[in-house]
Each structure stands twice: as structure tokens, then as C-alpha cells.
Computed example of a mutant assay.
Amino acid sequence: MASADFVTPYINAIGTAVPSHDIHAAFIGWARERLPIAQRKLFDRMAARAAIGHRWSVLPEDAGSPVGDTGFYADTPHPGTAARMSLYAQAAPELALSAIERLRDQVPIDDATHLVVASCTGFVAPGIDQIIARQLSLSPAIERTLIGFMGCYAAVAALRTARHIVRSDPAARVLVVTVELSTLHLQAVDEIEPLLAMLQFGDGAAAAMVSAERRGLAIGQPFATTLAKSDRLIRWDITDAGFAMHLSGEVPGRIAAALADPVLVDAITAGQDATSIDGWAVHAGGRSILDAVEHGLSLDADALDDSRAVLVDNGNMSSATLMFVLARVLARSDVRRGVALAFGPGLAAEGFAFGPSA
């Protein structure tokens, strides 16, 4: 067998899953009523501009809206972190397993040698990696890695980890899972900026098989950078009432400014002209972020269509979002040169080049 230095890892297939409870409209109604009347028109305008049609939640449908009279967030104060983590421990593995079953429809998973799981919206021990492995009856000797609290670019970290594994062991078959339950962390705030930040997020899970089999998308060179003096712009703060998301309105502007740096652009595009890349998989962190990437890299108006479609259908599902975009790219047969790119806490940007199997 050839040296591992010459092995190319591939994303062979991706399965995705969202819950069945669409909570987007209910949240908008709840949020606007918390604001002073003078701010509601601005909120309505920003909510419409977000270009999100649906966001899905694991919170039970039989209780109606999560913010309704019988919903999870009906009482004041809202449930504490313990109650939210109890729900996470049950619902996160279940949603992850739904995505894995959709992956299983495309490729075998029982022979997985490694399991890499990324999640930042909950904690449980034994971890969801162990829960997933047990539910799937995977070998107890499977090597597990849990990537926690990295936020939206954790999918890159998970796939990069899988790439390193396959390059070091060409026989490896790495099951990569991302699962996020953002709707477990509603905060009872009355300010427009955090309400607009919460309006972005939904629940979702994705699963991929990464191996040396020449099938799917070849994972190329990864890249990563952290923008200076930006560490307060995207944060998760753990509180007694769940995880409080802080997403500054400055983020799109900082991304656009960073993309004016030719050194960073060269790292993202591997020195290629950005317009020569025909497969862009950009984390759908919000419409303004996608606009910043499109304008910052001078891309065609349709270059980020896959990302925008995921945003419309699901909102921002943190680490799972990029996997949903990659699944759309993988379903196409016309991509010759691609780039995956995600932003998250730090403010950091991470990604990798990808291409077709042939």
C-alpha cells in the first residue's frame, strides 16, 4: 500500500436530520411582544430580512409552541440549565441517530473504526459519542473523539480530524457526527440585539463517512485563522438558565474587513482566484454573514445558493449547518474545485479545500 502521505481522504456521503417541530413563527411572535412598541417595526423588518423560513426544535410538539401557555418556556423564570441538559441528554443522541440512519441508506457504517462527534449546545457524561456508539452496537474498541464548545466551525474541526486519521491510517473509516440543539437555550431578554441573534438558531444533526475510498468529495488542505481583537463578538456564556448566546452586529463587518486581506484570501482559496472556485460551502451563519463573504470575495450572485437554501430551510444550526451545505454540494456532479468555510467564536475562520473524487 502507498505511504499514508499520499492518501486522499474523502467525504463519501452525508446524512442530515431536523426535528419535526417548526418554531420560527412562534418565536417571532413571542420576541416582538417583548420589545417596546417603537422597536417592533424594526424587529419585523430585520426578521424578514434574515431570509429564514423555518427553524426546527426538539421541544415537544404536543405541548404546542415552546413559548406558549403549556410549552417548555411557559413558566417564568424559564427552566434552568439542569432541565435543559436533561433534555439534551435524551434528544441529542436521538437526532444524531436519525442523521446516521440517513447516512446508512447511502454507505455502510457498521465497519466504522473511528467516531468523531461535535456539539456545543449541551453536556452529558458518558458523552453522546458513547451513547451513539452503544445505540448503533458499534465495536466497543471504536476510537472516539468528542469536540465540544467550538461553535459553528466545529464541523471543520471534526472533518479535519477525520482527514488526519485517514491520512495516518488508510484503512480507517471515520463516522463524523455534528448535532446541535440551539432551541434549548432561549433567554428571557428584552433587548433587540440578543432577540435577533436567537432568531437565527435552530436544531439539526448531520453524519458523514470519511475514508480513503474514492467516492464523494476529496478533503484537501485545511486552513484556520483568528481575527485580532474579536474574541468578544461571538460568545456562549453558561448561565443558570442555559447557554446565553452573544452574537454582535459587528460580525459581518469584521468578516468583510478580514476578507480584504489578500493573505487570508490566499489561504482560503489556496492561491486560486476566488471566482474560479465553483463549489462554495459557506456556513450559513446568517444572511448578513453570507452577504459579507459574497461581497468580500467578489463572488457571483449565485455562488452561495447552497448556503442560502440551508439558511431558508433550517436557520443556523451551529456546527451542523456546514454539513447540510456540504450535503447539497455533494448531491451535485458539476463541482471541480471547492472551498468549505465557517466562522465562529474567536472570532475565528476555519475551512478546507475540496474537490471531486475523479
Rank of each mutant, 00 (worst) to 15 (best):
D266Y: 01
A267F: 08
V265T: 12
P252G: 03
S248Q: 11
D261Q: 03
A256K: 01
H246T: 12
A258C: 05
G249E: 07
T269E: 00
G271E: 02
L264T: 11
A244V: 12
A260N: 10
A244H: 10
M245V: 14
A260R: 07
A244N: 07
V265E: 00
M245N: 04
T269F: 13
P252F: 11
L259P: 02
G271M: 04
L264V: 13
A244I: 04
A267K: 15
P262R: 00
S248N: 10
I255S: 01
T269M: 06
V263S: 13
G249V: 10
P252K: 09
G271R: 02
Q272R: 15
G271D: 02
I255T: 03
P252S: 05
E250S: 10
A267N: 06
G253E: 12
S248L: 09
L264A: 14
P262Y: 01
S248V: 05
L264R: 13
F243G: 15
H246Y: 13
E250K: 11
R254A: 13
G271W: 02
P262M: 03
H246P: 03
V265N: 01
M245F: 13
I268L: 01
E250C: 10
D266C: 04
G271K: 06
Q272H: 15
M245Q: 14
P252H: 07
V263A: 15
P252T: 11
L259M: 02
G253F: 15
P262E: 10
A257T: 12
L259A: 09
T269Q: 02
I255W: 05
I255V: 15
A270S: 06
L264M: 11
D266K: 04
V251A: 01
M245G: 02
G271A: 03
L247H: 00
A256W: 13
A260K: 12
A267I: 04
I268Q: 06
Q272C: 05
R254I: 08
A270L: 11
P262C: 00
A244W: 05
V263G: 14
G271S: 04
V265Y: 00
A244D: 11
I255E: 03
L264N: 07
P262G: 00
I268C: 05
G253H: 10
V251G: 08
R254S: 14
A260T: 02
L264G: 13
S248E: 10
A256Y: 14
A267M: 08
A257D: 11
V265S: 05
L259D: 00
L264W: 12
A257H: 13
S248H: 12
V263E: 10
F243W: 08
M245D: 09
F243Y: 10
A258E: 10
A257M: 09
R254Q: 07
A244K: 14
E250Q: 07
F243V: 09
H246S: 07
G271Q: 02
V251L: 05
A267G: 13
P252C: 11
A256C: 01
Q272M: 05
F243I: 10
S248I: 05
T269L: 09
T269I: 05
A260C: 06
A270Q: 14
A260S: 01
V263K: 07
A270D: 14
H246W: 10
